[in-house]
Write a protein that binds this DNA or RNA. Structure first.
Ligand SMILES: Nc1ccn([C@H]2C[C@H](O)[C@@H](COP(=O)(O)OP(=O)(O)OP(=O)(O)O)O2)c(=O)n1
Ligand SMILES: [Mg+2]
Ligand SMILES: [Mg+2]
Length: 857
DNA sequence: ATCCTCCCCTAC
DNA sequence: TAAGGTAGGGGAGGAT
């Protein structure tokens, strides 16, 4: 292994250098406990090597992801920034990067760039003075035929042409006596900390670039910047035992270039009048932002130096390289750089990828790997305190006819593929990630044996701080538990909410849409704009509403036990109440139907009581008489599936997907037989979406049978399943248009309910899931709440208020309520008619049909 | 015009 | 044997 032959192994410190370090922590935060005592037992060379390659690939190592990241230098430097963020979070507060902007014109800006010399090497040889002038590199392997990469080479080694990224065998070919040291990630971490401690001591305008490199705005520092640089470099050396170099100039670009000149162990100042001279001969590759590709393109235009680049017009550069890149080249080539030294901005994405040792023999391998990657990403999201909405799966696929990778276990020549999906609610939940990822993965249609790399990136990040801390005051759960006590306020605020929601609906001609929007948004805004009230509610005891606010229809349909429980809550008065109102109940169905319409219209006019959400604890709405007048002309007869009349503009065929490529099979399974057939006829059987991406939780495992027989017959195996975006089912076209979502949450949730409760009859998991969603998050969902979520909240509200242990009887109540809510809008009438019969059957089947009879009015 | 997705490029 | 990650910028091209 990588034991330098000329090192005295009896020297304590050198022995320590051989120890495999462990900078990897799943939470992406290195702490002081990261030295693993297990490592003390022996040097890595004592490890018995496995007979096959498999031990170094994803085959064979169940902990591959974790072990890989533990040993990856690029992982170390790539994740360093997030660790720095955490460690120096408080320090960087109060540093306003605009301040330098104001002064820039008056005072000559002075920027300093500091970078450690051959960082990884310096750190591991700082106690080996005898190696200072010998060629040394840091690398995993000392094998002179190996393809391990050189991470860093010291300056004597660079004289041989050795560079970072080079294979060790090439380095050894250039310099056979090159001394190789293994990595010591803890040491790098520690030195980086010390490095930044020194920098922060000399001003708060520090912009971290990497673990060994930073910019300082020293415009406001007193004294000569060059003296300051010497001081800083001396302090760095004294605290770390490693040298750093510094560049000083009028902007970040020139300071960075100055550092290049200064290295090693030096410093360089480029005054404004020397800039042109400095640049004229500078190779274009030296400019930050000019890498291999850009250099090659420029060389083809006969541009080798910045001086030559200067000659090209901005227009021409922008035409050839794009607007921004062209401008950057034009600016940089004449030493212009308008960037300001500032804080690292909040991160825009979080991800993890592995492109080494990735080999799968079957789909299971791949799924398992993806699952582990999701765990990693989830932990990183949590570590950063963020949740994301957009998920991008990146795959490296072996290019057709690509030869074996030159690099051991490398990815070789690959096609890079990526697919992404965006969900309505940000998440950091492993399970959700796993389901989304699984689905994304399916959309690639890959032969897993061709996969050479996998990465998962999460973007559209939102801070967890608001939502998770808001879990207390913003969560549905707290809202639901406190809502009954705050009925009055809710009503008042609905007026305000309605105003806002109307703004949200601006430009919409469709009346129905306006109503739906106003209705659902109203509630969400009320909650969100009144968080202090919400918080105050938290500890309040939930007081049952006045008895007169109870919904007779629902009361009557409660199972006897629930009714008794409720009756007890009301001190036995419920029985009387029901008896007294017996006459009314016959009209209840009609009342409710009319209520939905009246409610909306009433809300528009009065913005008060009419918007009451609860079906059980609704206010006594003085609409009954008015409502009756409406029934005849506006409300279709709705008393069950058998008498369903299609709502205006919506027919069954509207529900057939236009793309014909996706179907939620969970929902499919719930469909009445004749509808199922209808739909299957329109669907290519080999392209079925197993579940929707735009839902809070997905069933982890969907049995193939869930697709229904016809489909199963047409599919020869699970490979035929194609997962794709955009669930079609259940969303009428005008909703797609209005809410920009081709998905219906309620159907997915019902599917979820089905999967989670199907076997046990227990709704707790789904209740938990939904009630932990914050109001804030829901508010961010499209223009307001999904109407369906609203309905579900209502259902949950009943559970929570009644303190019901969730079991099949409550499922029944839930469905019963759903049925009532189905009358709220045309769409839900339709939805109800599709889903309800199935649920009815489910309940009857699983529970001996003893609840079945109660389902009839 | 502006957004989004799917890339590629760059730096450490 | 070896540990080719991470994140931002930005361009091309399509949808809106
Ligand atoms: N391809 C690369 C580039 C860098 N690094 C690691 C090792 C380096 O020590 C560290 C810092 O990168 P630098 O670019 O600052 O390089 P060095 O500090 O090694 O050398 P220099 O003196 O040029 O700064 O990052 C790496 O592992 N692989
Ligand atoms: Mg360096
Ligand atoms: Mg550096």
């Amino acid at each position: 292994m990588a034991v330098p032959s000329n090192i005295d192994t009896e020297d304590e410190s050198s022995v320590k250098n051989y120890l495999q370090s462990n900078h990897y922590q799943p939470s992406a935060l290195v702490s002081s406990n990261c030295i693993n005592n297990q490592n003390m037992k022996g040097s890595p060379s004592s490890t018995v090597s496995e007979p096959s390659n498999q031990s170094h690939s994803t085959l064979g190592d169940p902990n591959f992801v974790e072990n890989y990241f533990k040993n990856s230098r690029l992982h170390f430097i790539g994740t360093w920034r997030n660790r720095y963020r955490k460690r120096f979070r408080t320090l960087s507060d109060g540093f306003n990067c605009t301040s330098s902007n104001i002064k820039a014109s008056a005072l000559k800006t002075a920027i300093m760039h500091v970078d450690m010399d051959c960082f990884f090497v310096s750190v591991v040889i700082r106690n080996h003075l005898e190696l200072r002038d010998k060629p040394v590199a840091v690398c995993h392997s000392d094998n002179r035929k190996g393809t391990a990469e050189i991470s860093s080479a010291n300056y004597p080694a660079r004289d041989y042409g050795i560079k970072a990224g080079m294979f060790v065998r090439d380095a050894k070919a250039l310099c056979p006596h090159l001394v190789i040291f293994p990595y010591n990630f803890e040491a790098y971490e520690e030195v980086a900390d010390q490095f930044y401690s020194v920098l922060h001591k000399h001003g708060n305008k520090v912009q971290a670039v990497s673990c060994d490199e930073a910019f300082l705005d020293v415009t406001d520092s007193e004294g000569d910047p060059q003296l300051l640089a010497s001081k800083i470099r001396r302090e760095i050396f004294e605290t770390t035992g490693c040298t750093a170099s510094a560049g000083i100039a009028g902007n970040m670009l020139m300071a960075r270039l100055a550092t290049r000149t200064a290295k090693p162990d030096g410093q360089c100042y480029i005054p404004p009048e020397r800039v042109d001279d400095y640049l004229s001969q500078l190779p274009i590759k030296a400019l930050p932002g000019v890498g291999y590709v850009l250099e090659e393109k420029l060389k083809k235009q006969n541009v080798w130096t910045c001086g030559q680049l200067c000659m090209i017009s901005k227009d021409s550069l922008q035409k050839d390289f794009g607007l921004k890149t062209g401008e950057m080249l034009w600016n940089y080539s004449r030493g212009v750089d308008n960037r300001l030294v500032g804080l690292i901005q909040e991160s825009k994405s979080v991800g993890a990828e592995v492109n080494w040792g990735v080999r799968f023999k079957d789909v299971k391998d791949a799924q398992n790997f993806l699952s582990n990657l999701c765990k990693e990403v989830s932990l990183r999201l949590q570590g950063c305190g963020v949740e994301g909405r957009t998920f991008t799966l990146k795959i490296k696929k072996r290019r057709k006819d690509a030869e074996e990778p030159t690099k051991y276990m490398g990815h070789g020549d690959c096609e890079n593929l990526s697919h992404s999906t965006t969900v309505p609610v940000a998440t950091d939940d492993v399970e959700v990630l796993q389901r989304i990822t699984k689905q994304l993965f399916g959309s690639f249609h890959l032969d897993v044996k061709e996969i050479r790399g996998v990465g998962l990136q999460v973007s559209r990040l939102e801070s967890t701080e608001n939502s998770k801390q808001g879990l207390e005051r913003n969560s549905l759960k707290s809202w639901l538990t406190s809502a009954s006590a705050r009925t009055e306020e809710l009503c008042k605020n609905n007026y305000v909410a309605k105003e806002s929601s109307n703004q949200g609906c601006e430009g919409e001609g469709d009346e129905t849409l306006g109503q739906l929007c106003g209705n659902s948004v109203g509630l969400s805004i009320q909650m969100d704009s009144n968080t202090s009230n919400g918080a105050a509610c938290l500890n309040e005891v939930s007081v049952p509403p006045p008895i007169c606010h109870l919904d007779m229809g629902v009361l009557k349909s409660l199972p006897p036990e629930l009714f008794s429980e409720l009756n007890e809550i009301y001190g036995g008065k419920l029985v009387d109440f029901v008896a007294k109102n017996k006459g009314k109940t016959e009209n209840m169905n009609h009342t409710l139907r009319a209520y939905s319409h009246e409610k909306i219209e009433g809300a528009m006019k009065e913005g008060q009581a009419a918007l009451l959400p609860s079906m059980v604890f609704q206010n006594e709405i003085p609409v009954e008489n008015k409502a009756k007048q409406h029934i005849a002309k506006e409300v279709p007869a709705v008393s069950g599936a058998e008498s369903f009349v299609p709502a205006s503009g919506l027919t069954k065929t509207d529900l057939i997907p236009s793309s014909l490529s996706q179907v939620d099979t969970a929902v499919l399974q719930q469909l009445p037989e004749e509808l199922k057939v209808d739909i299957l006829e329109h669907l290519p059987a080999h392209r079925m979406q197993v579940f929707s991406p735009n839902v809070l939780l997905y069933p982890t495992e969907i049995p193939l049978e869930a697709l229904g027989t016809k489909t199963a017959e047409n599919n020869s195996g699970s490979k035929d399943f194609v997962l794709d975006n955009n669930l079609w089912f259940g969303t009428p076209p005008h909703w797609v248009e209005k809410f920009k979502v081709s998905n219906c949450l309620i159907l997915n949730i019902l599917a979820e309910m089905y999967y989670k409760s199907g076997s046990t009859g227990n709704l707790s998991p789904i209740l938990q899931c939904i009630s932990s969603v914050s109001i804030h998050q829901l508010d961010a969902f499209q223009d307001g709440w999904d109407e369906a979520m609203y309905i579900l909240c209502e259902l949950l509200k009943q559970y929570i208020k009644l303190k019901i242990e969730l079991d099949i009887e409550e499922i029944y109540v839930c469905f019963r309520l759903l049925r009532r809510f189905a009358m709220k809008s045309e769409f839900f009438i339709q939805m109800y008619n599709i889903v309800y019969p199935y649920l009815q059957a489910l309940v009857g089947e699983n529970y001996g049909g003893n609840l079945h009879m109660s389902l009839k009015d």
